[in-house]
Amino acid sequence: MLLEINDLKVSYGKIQAIKGISLNIKAGEIVTLVGANGAGKTTLLKTISGILKPAAGVIKFDGKDIQGIAPHNRVLEGLCQAPEGRGIFPGMTVLENLEMGKYARKDWKSELSEDIERIYTLFPRLKERQSQAGGTLSGGEQQMLSIGRALMSRPRLLLLDEPSMGLAPMFIQQIFKIIREIQSQGVSILLVEQNAAQALSCANRAYILETGNIVKEGAGKDLLNDDAIKKAYLGTGA
């Protein structure tokens, strides 16, 4: 098991945002977490990355409890996140943003150009824009940059927070295609999405999150055909 979460609880002050979640991700899987706004999806990702501290529960990565590992050191464990809102460094060029993906390694300059080339193969658009400031890119380009930057750290588990948010349909198709391509390169993915139709058809397995609880889990394709889910998330009720 690559990621194992057991009975996780997270609170903001007195408000409990996550009320005891258990989930797991096997190596090589795409697992998606689908839920409405405020269901606790981003909270969960922030807790896995260490930005938020859980009130209770265990997070194991590759069999190891990561609670004691400082947030900035979790990248070295093989966990990297493309955050909600993309988190592009606006004043850095595209190339510098990508290089930030290797910041965690003291030897970040070794094999740097190979890693950059790898990302440019996946996102040729970024190469065209490489000396442009990150803040001047379009939303879709920023999303590519955000994912590309996370991949620079050579993660074993990639955490994606709403990669399709605010993007034109053409870009959404492209992003999901690339997510599958990343999986084929051996990276596991935890995908948080509001766009349930795309996320479920892309994922191996899925969890449905409602107000801090997991209410359903199963194979992505099965949930895609589940009547209750169709009604609540896909807007195509039977």
Binding site: P71, R74, V75, P83, G87, I88, M92, G101, A104, R149
Partner: peptide
């Protein structure tokens, strides 16, 4: 330099900087 890039990263977006492994 690495730490210099860290200064820029923290100045521009501290949360993302942490996610990239910057020791603030």
């Amino acid at each position: 330099t690495r730490l210099g890039r860290g200064i820029r990263a923290v100045s521009q977006d501290e949360k993302t900087a942490i996610l990239m492994g910057v020791n603030v």
